[in-house]
């Protein structure tokens, strides 16, 4: 199989370039893109640089752009891809080296939405009660793995990475707004009511298209808008 991989080491390269590798993916028992990248790194070129950890799609380390679409290398089957397989770093984020991007802005946006439960009531001796229906509202939200596939596929984030929270952060914002145990719903909504944080979403649904966990940030964003409207009128 032929792979064309984005290479850039700021220490040695003036500018990025694409490098081709031919790998016998069957002989190396590679099923996923990550298997192939690691086989290339291990047997052909140990300077190829990428992040990886769990290799089962739950840690969110190996988000990258595969044949033009963001996804996790560890859960993308080689058999689903056309050759040559073109691998680039996640778009819209500064490249540190090869497929490793600087995710500082992504994490800053996540922290901005106060991603933790806030409850001003006295702490009970046992658990706070929550009905299965209330808990079900968190399904499709809490499963986010912060891989940045969605946010880095969003043009609104590309243009305003310092101001637009982005789909991943907004999904988490809604995860706490929707939690029956959180008492700061109004403050959370108020924090997002400026022209950039939330409203730069134009609803093009790139995020939904690429999410490796099948989550729907656009829906969450629309829910936030609706709640905000309810709060306002």
């Amino acid at each position: 199989m032929r792979f064309s991989i984005y290479r850039y080491n700021p220490e040695t390269d003036k500018k990025p370039y694409m490098q081709d590798y031919d790998l016998d993916s069957e002989a190396n028992s590679c099923y996923m893109v990550l298997d192939a990248l690691l086989a290339i790194k291990n047997t052909m070129d140990d300077t190829l640089t990428l992040r990886r950890s769990c290799r089962e799609g739950v840690c969110g380390s190996d988000g990258m752009n595969i044949n033009g679409k963001n996804g996790l290398a560890c859960t993308t089957h080689l058999s689903s891809l056309k050759e040559p397989i073109i691998i680039r770093p996640l778009p819209g984020l500064p490249v540190i080296r090869d497929l490793v991007v600087d995710m500082t802005q992504f994490y800053q946006q996540y922290e901005k939405i106060k991603p933790y439960l806030q409850n001003s009531e006295p702490v009970p001796a046992k658990e706070r009660l929550q009905s299965p229906a209330e808990r079900a509202k968190l399904d499709g939200l809490y499963e986010c793995i912060l891989c940045a596939c969605c946010t880095s596929s969003c043009p609104s984030f590309w243009w305003n990475p310092d101001k637009f929270v982005g789909p991943a952060g907004l999904l988490q914002a809604y995860r706490f707004i929707a939690d029956s145990r959180d008492t700061e719903k109004s403050e959370r909504l108020a924090d997002l009511a400026d022209p950039f944080s939330l409203f730069r979403c134009r609803g093009i649904m790139n995020c939904v298209d690429v999410c490796p966990k099948g989550l729907n940030p656009t829906k969450a964003i629309n829910e936030i808008k609706e709640l905000m409207l309810e709060e306002a009128v």
Partner: peptide
């Protein structure tokens, strides 16, 4: 129309509504 519950900077919501 937009109440102050949404804080000082609710221009995003106003714009969106408009």
């Amino acid at each position: 129309m937009v109440k102050s519950v949404l804080g000082v900077n609710h221009q995003g919501l106003t714009d969106w509504l408009i």
